[in-house]
Nucleic acid binder design. Structure first.
Lengths: 336, 336
DNA sequence: CTGAAAGCGCTTACAG
DNA sequence: CTGAAAGCGCTTACAG
């Protein structure tokens, strides 16, 4: 491989001068610089990034942990993170943890060894128990898409999930719904709490019996738990699913149960993933500013890298927004 | 940061001995090794991977280019690649090219500089024009998920897309369909050719007028071009979409046009993405062994890395399989 | 504006 | 089995 030394010899200078030409940090006489550039060109020289990293202590690489890359939520985050990194000349080292805490821990241990300038952890599912490992990391760490109680050891950029649930609830309240059901993933307690708050504001309560757990965030999971919700007691007039895909399953369950949406049943989802446009009727849902979240998190991270300090330890909550489509309507007189 | 030197001092040995203990490549006296290990523990030493890379010339990182990470096709590939890499102790550097050849080229240039031990390029969309840049790469390169004419400069692990189209066509022929339409993405000419071959085998031709281009591989794109196909001339009795999502759009177009699937219209998709289970009726499609493909490609790549040679230049075609569900049926008498 | 020196933290032969 | 030396390819002060 051709090294800086080779270029230097060819251009009749020392390698320090070559380095100066490349970095542009020191002014080099135009004639010399031209000779160096010519030599680089002729030799097809390309600097060895590993050597540079060792000398500078920076790899210009950021690690990203996501639970998975399947599904549009995290894949959009990955792409946004990559975009921001690219704008700043950084590379992306990706680890998907796949609901496997042990796997996450192993990867974490691997990255601790300086191969990364900073680390972004998206999603609280798999790494939450291993955060202490990062306590004396030599690089900045930022958390995002964190729904459960965020540890106060790292800056967090996330969504106001409580408000997301609240928006869904308030919307249903404004439409006059009183008897409602919730389809929830186990780790979505914050959304459910927000949803309840909207009802509590009107002196209504959403009983625990109205909250149906969907172990898996899948279409089938939504179908099954919506089926249970519709079969139970007095049929609800509205339903909030903490995940769009659960809502899509619920739509199907409603069809099967012969109840028309939104006439007999209103359905609200959560996330506003692109898939929801495939549904009939189009799903009313709470849109999550995931790209904005990812961008802010990365920018915070990179600011910490360049100022080489830990970022100010803060909790930043981005606001979700209700997107009203066709799956919700006023509570009907003919209900039941 | 604590270095090997620090550990050595603490253990009362030289850093070479520490290195030996860590690598395990040289036998060290047990007592010494124990002292070294204790020192490592006490100091919380973790080797600097960048320094190691510079010394060994290996970063234990593999670069992966994919067009996007949205949609299940490439996201499954990414996860499978990562799994195989992890099994072998490698990290994943991810670049999504996003239909942007220029962006792809920039990233390529960045990686050429030794920050990666090998490179896997999935998808022919964005990098096809920039492959010459890789001509004198100092690391192995493998191509996968390549549908267009593959360059013969690198090993290719891909799908027999021609056969995929053929399987779809043969299935429809076996059901007696003669008047068919195709919904195709512009870069899916090979699938279409295979589809046509199945008809040609029976002396039938699929005219160009029966092939409808869908510029975007989206639900809306499928809906629009299926609408055109159903409106045109004598209505086809069957339809092949070169992409599942196009087929889902077609299903919706059929519903709107008031034609019942599969009674009035059979629909075959391509890929067998998980989404297709959401459709009504469940979609018959051609399943693509994408995970197997990704695995083989990475294993080929890693074999080349460890044997530090270019991999044998070969073209490997994995076989797709027809998955019959509910969207296809025998051609009806009452057709049209 | 250019060159000589030291150093980033490791590994790899090679002696002892 | 352990130590002394050289080297991986850069960058960063520091002289001239």
């Amino acid at each position: 491989m051709v090294t800086m030394q080779d270029v230097a010899k060819r251009a009749g200078v020392t390698k320090q001068t070559v380095s100066n030409v490349i970095s542009g940090r020191v002014v080099v006489r135009p004639a010399t610089a031209a000779r160096v550039r010519a030599a680089i060109e002729e030799l097809g020289y390309t600097p060895n990034l590993v050597a540079r990293s060792l000398a500078t202590g920076s790899t210009r690489t950021v690690g990203l942990f996501v639970p998975t890359v399947a599904g549009s939520f995290y894949s959009e985050i990955v792409e946004e993170v990559e975009d921001v990194l690219e704008e700043h000349g950084y590379h992306l080292l990706l680890c998907t943890t796949r609901l496997d805490g042990e796997r996450a821990r192993r990867h974490l241990a691997g990255l601790t060894s300086r191969s990364v300038d900073a680390l972004l952890i998206a999603g609280d599912r798999d790494l939450i128990d291993h955060l202490p490992l990062l306590a004396d990391a030599r690089f900045p760490v930022v958390l995002c898409a964190w729904e459960t109680e965020a540890p106060d050891t790292f800056p967090v950029v996330t969504i106001d999930y409580e408000r997301a649930g609240y928006l869904a609830g308030r919307h249903l309240r404004e439409l006059g719904h009183e008897r409602v059901a919730v389809l929830a993933s186990p780790d979505h307690t914050v959304r459910v709490a927000g949803f309840r708050r909207a009802f509590a504001a009107d002196g209504l309560t959403v009983p625990d019996s109205a909250v149906h757990m969907a172990p898996e965030p899948t279409f089938g999971g939504g179908f099954a738990s919506a089926g249970a919700a519709l079969a139970a007691g007095p049929r609800p007039t509205a339903l909030f699913a903490t995940h769009d895909i659960l809502a899509l399953g619920a739509l199907e369950a409603a069809r099967v149960a012969g109840c028309s949406v939104p006439r007999d049943l209103s359905v609200v989802g959560h996330d506003d993933n692109p898939e929801v446009r495939l549904s009939h009727p189009a799903l009313t849902t709470v849109a999550i500013p995931k790209r904005a979240m990812a961008r802010q998190a990365v920018e915070l991270l990179l600011r910490a890298v360049t100022k080489s300090g830990t970022p100010a330890n803060s909790l930043q909550l981005l606001r979700p927004e209700l997107v009203v489509r066709d799956s919700t309507g006023p509570v009907g007189e003919i209900g039941v």
